[in-house]
Amino acid sequence: MELSKLPGYLLGRLVKAAIVILAIVVCNFFLIHAAPGDPASIIAGQSGAADARFLEQLRAQFGLDQPLYVQLWIYLKGVLTLDLGFSHRQQVAVASLLWDRLPATLLLTGAAFVFALSVGVAMGALAALRVGTWGDSIITVLALTFYATPLFWVGLMLVLLFSVTLEWLPSFGMASVGVDLHGIDVVLDVAKHLLLPALTLGLFYVAVYARLSRATMLEVADQDFVKTARAKGVPEGRILRRHILRNALLPIITFAGIQAGQLIGGSILVETVFAWPGIGRLAFEALLARDYQVLMGVFFCTSVMVVLFNLITDLLYAVVDPRVEVSA
């Protein structure tokens, strides 16, 4: 792509992303209001003491006595300044709750993503190389198995095997509680806790990427430039590396970039199973308490991440692949 076009393209993508986010925010607001029960009565219920005066005080405090459009305006203004509301149950701003939990989720999804992409592509490439053989069948069956197994169940089974039966790995949490660790020990401790959840979250996507890369590679292998190379007598290994893999990788990575956002959705289940202290776990806790403000915050946060991932993928793609047409 010509670099001169890049700013315009960038701007276009940003505007689009902003519109999507705005739509999500408005959606969010109306969903909050579709939710039954107003926050005042929830808190009154929880504090164990409810007289009419107390309820009035709470309603006024949360602006629940304002008309709907005023509340929408307040909400929009809030989101612009990254104020995502207040969790009355936890007595903390939703944004700060999310901010605290985000690193854990990014670590988990990042690890799962790297694992899924590398193993998935390797499996797909292997299957494509040995297409039609037993190896291909085994990999295909394996991918299908990962694909058809409920994520949370895989997690539970891994816990059962590695934590309960073998006692090799911790079954929950992100770090050992109350143990004083320093330096490399902290990293190792977290890594030990990370292994099972990342594996669980990654397995499904291993299947996805394996099937995708197998198909893409077979498709590329069918194309003329590969045939030409083969006709020229280029060694098979070199054809695979230089021609097929290289050209198949780009669409795989693009697709993976888009999928990366969806990984965060899956992390709700995995974090629930492994008590991983990320936003997925936060969403589950909020769900149990029906803390809608926090749920909305999680929805907003994950949506923004997806939009961001897409944006980054688009940009990388545009920069890397000169053939991609740039139109916003």
């Binding site: 956002g261 709700i268 289940l269 909305m296 929805f299 949506s303 897409n310």
Partner: peptide, 10 residues
Amino acid sequence: TIPSFVLAIL
């Protein structure tokens, strides 16, 4: 674009 599982939960 929006994470489908989170939306379903919501």
